[in-house]
Design a protein around this nucleic acid. Structure first.
Lengths: 167, 167
DNA sequence: CGTTCTTGCTTCGAATTCGAAGCACCTGCC
DNA sequence: GGCAGGTGCTTCGAATTCGAAGCAAGAACG
């Protein structure tokens, strides 16, 4: 590959735009369903879902923030909201005195269970409907490595100038 | 169709989660680049890009809002910001007196051209890097129909026109 | 041990976001 | 024509979001 191209070719552009649009549209649809079904925002649902997935039902704040791609301060705010609603509990971390552990409550699990069917329904009818089983598999196979690649790259700060070879 | 399943199987879930995560991470990375390169938010960039794509350089407000999946009020706000920055101009619509047409200015095109290389660079290194040419093609081929399906299915911003039958 | 750098979370202020309500204009129907 | 309803955009208020700054606790290093 030569220097960074001034633009992407149509295929690359198509993949990029389609990705963004699909994600945006899906998010919107899901958000509406969640609001109606359980008065939850998408982030709140994501948090509960991540906690509910864990057998222990708990996670550290930072892990949650990174997991859902959210700012730390934003997470503090949302955790406060969820706690006030009785859906999670915050407590000290076992091994790290300054860490905070968020744990889903029974009420949280209950609400999660209540909104899940509708959520699945939306994802199914919006995202999965036009795809065959093999295509869904292919999609997962394509996006998973990309996700891993993105997760592996440095998040922020010191992004030393990318030098062209031999510069 | 049987009853709505209580959950998605691992493959479906994997595709869904990977999609959301990839989109979130990409957006985050892009947002940072845009902020540094041209002090633009992602939405603002999307708007300029859509306008710049059009030969006429103009679009109606509603089309823009739908295009980038944004609320109308939000678009009004952003259009105001962009106009104040001299990147776009708002004017009356030709055929519709209450319509507003947004047109990109030379300054807008210039800024777009200025931030584009870095933008492309980010998309390239984050999203496209781990994929072969064929895979990018496959991804586009998978997501485009999904996008079209989503665009066709829900009356997103359109007000749910409910009729009182036999009231 | 004490100093210094790093990490985890919260608080703070400012900017953005959305939906509901409001206005002005168009359309359908009589 | 003229009225009821629909569409396009903006204003308004309330909620959410982020980054920077602040604080407390761990880790590295002499």
């Amino acid at each position: 590959m030569a220097d960074s191209p001034p633009s992407l070719d149509p295929v690359q552009l198509g993949a990029y735009f389609a990705l963004i649009e699909v994600a945006s549209l899906l998010r919107h649809a899901v958000e509406q369903q969640l609001r109606e079904a359980g008065d939850l925002s998408y982030v709140q649902f994501q948090l509960l879902a991540r906690l509910g997935d864990e057998p222990s039902g708990r996670h550290r704040m930072t892990d949650l923030a990174d997991g859902v791609v959210y700012s730390r301060s934003g997470l503090t705010y949302q955790a406060g909201l969820l706690e006030k609603a009785g859906l999670v509990v915050r407590g000290p971390s076992a091994d790290d005195e300054r860490g905070v552990t968020v744990t889903i409550t029974d009420a949280g699990r209950a609400l999660l269970g209540k909104v899940l069917p509708g959520h699945v329904e939306v994802v199914d009818s919006m995202l999965l409907a036009p795809l065959s089983r093999d295509q869904v598999e292919a999609l997962a196979g394509l996006l998973t490595p990309v996700r891993d690649h993105m997760r592996a790259t440095p998040p922020r700060s010191a992004a030393p100038r990318r030098r062209k070879d031999g510069a």
